[in-house]
């Protein structure tokens, strides 16, 4: 129904044909509320701008349509924090391995919430 063009971003979806709306408000999981608080605190303290996070979400390309809302926002925050030098890929990977060990989660485990498996480098 809408124009497509070379630079159309995956977030630019106004006017796309789509299915019925799930009208129930499902609320948020604990980690999602915590992730939201993290993003909100970082923007309020000036470490990152909302515009930068939106742009990083748009740069997810094909993955944008495969991820849930908080997976998108978490991916975007990761990209910008690395871009701005607040952390490195290596640091993040090491910390994620550390957390997995704490929760006793093997790398290969499929969680019911996972849509596409994020490749740990």
């Amino acid at each position: 129904m809408t124009d497509t063009h070379a630079h159309k971003l995956p977030s630019d979806i106004g006017g796309n044909e789509a299915g019925p709306v799930d009208t129930i408000d499902h609320g948020m999981r604990f980690w999602e509320r915590q992730a939201n608080a993290l993003r909100s605190t970082l923007t309020r303290k000036g470490f990152v701008k909302t515009d930068e996070l939106r742009r990083a979400a748009e740069e997810l390309g094909d993955r944008y349509s495969q991820l849930h809302y908080f997976e998108i926002t978490t991916s975007a925050l990761r990209a910008i924090m690395i871009e701005k030098g607040h952390m490195t890929e290596a640091e993040l990977k090491a910390k994620m391995d550390d957390i997995r060990a704490r929760f006793n989660v093997p790398d290969e485990m499929e969680s019911p919430i996972k849509k596409g498996k994020a490749q740990s480098t």
Partner: peptide, 13 residues
């Protein structure tokens, strides 16, 4: 239709 971050949705252009 420039590349990059825009706040003008395609449908209104």
């Amino acid at each position: 239709f420039p590349p990059g971050h825009r706040r003008t949705p395609t449908y209104i252009r």
